[in-house]
Design a protein around this nucleic acid. Sequence first.
DNA 1: ATTATGAATTTTGAATACAAAATTCAGTAT
DNA 2: ATACTGAATTTTGTATTCAAAATTCATAAT
Lengths: 223, 223
Amino acid sequence: MPNLGAQHANLDQKVYQILKTMIMERKLLPGEKIRQEKLAQELGISRTPLVAALKFLEHEKLVESKPRRGFYVRLFKIQEMVSIFELREVLEGLAARRAAGQVTNTQIDRLRQFFSPFKQLPEISDYRRYSQEDRLFHNYVIQIGAKEFLRSILETYNIISFSYQVVSSEGLVRSPDETLEEHLAVIEAICDRDPEAAENLMRNHFKKSAASLTEGIAKLRSA
Amino acid sequence: MPNLGAQHANLDQKVYQILKTMIMERKLLPGEKIRQEKLAQELGISRTPLVAALKFLEHEKLVESKPRRGFYVRLFKIQEMVSIFELREVLEGLAARRAAGQVTNTQIDRLRQFFSPFKQLPEISDYRRYSQEDRLFHNYVIQIGAKEFLRSILETYNIISFSYQVVSSEGLVRSPDETLEEHLAVIEAICDRDPEAAENLMRNHFKKSAASLTEGIAKLRSA
DNA sequence: ATTATGAATTTTGAATACAAAATTCAGTAT
DNA sequence: ATACTGAATTTTGTATTCAAAATTCATAAT
């Protein structure tokens, strides 16, 4: 139970962050109804900023509002996760394109460091560590190439995408040995300042993951 | 001054619609501070649903909140309009791809009707009518191909895009004679159920418009 | 005349209050 | 036992209230 003092400028934002974390960490379960009075008391606030935060989350699709019924934690079907991969495909493709077009030398140095602990290894076994590097890498490309609108959209949908990983067994759609190459290729294209290549490689990377997810569904169905 | 009775289930949504219209119709001017008490009174409501609606609009970037300072109508720089075109390029490209993959025969019939009043003409002079058809066409592709996430993003950004047209002289970035062909090509690709072509053609369509906008800026600068 | 000071006013952020709607639950009829 | 009815309870949507922060405005100092 996080304690919220009065020391913050904007309670809304703080509450929003807390709720987001609670949802991603499965403290609030998908499908579950959010009891406003109860939750507000637990957080030591009134319903006003809580509802404001819930409205934010509604926009980010993490929560659903049924009029006169209340807010419910959103549940994502696998099919919806596939759509989100499709979205990320084109959006991060765009981010990669722009990144390649405006990357600085300092950023190139940083980019080249990504995945270096894994490059030497004959086989990658620490999935958790790789998955974390994966997330950091994607975020860094966004930081370089996406601003304003693109960035705010990606923030929203990547959160959903990542929060889903909590459910999936190892947190990855495909094995590191398969994706490492793709990641390195994207890095090279950006460092070469080749926007076309960067976009295409990033899109391919996602296309393969989406395909893999879809396959996974098919297998699940037949099993 | 629209009159809001108590007859609505959700005031938030109604107020949100009204505000959106007011912003797009320039009843609230970009940069202007929104006087909450005053506006709430004009609408005959309290600040609570007004603030809720403003938070919605903040998410859609039509309004900006400065903490402890209030809400301001957002002002878009031309550079930001270009970014929005870039966004629409990849997003509507995706919509077109998906549209081509799942279009029904009925929808094909409807699609082929778009722009037919303009096809015969040697030259298109009624810019307003063409601009309206343009908007309807893009919305229809979205209706066919985009659902859930993609649709909600496009709704947001197309609104900004269209609301900008109110400012620009004739409401179009390029002349109809230039874009008609492109529109028809996209229609054909979708009706042929060719996702790749549909996406590429749609993206090209936007790429050219973005380029044209950028050129416009350059000209403005040198003038 | 310009800048600085601080009191009066306005506005925001958040809690509280309250009527209307939804939900729960007990008691009754089938 | 099950389905129905309506009263009691809870929850939602909205208005109102209030303290703290920001803004305005008048006055005084340079």
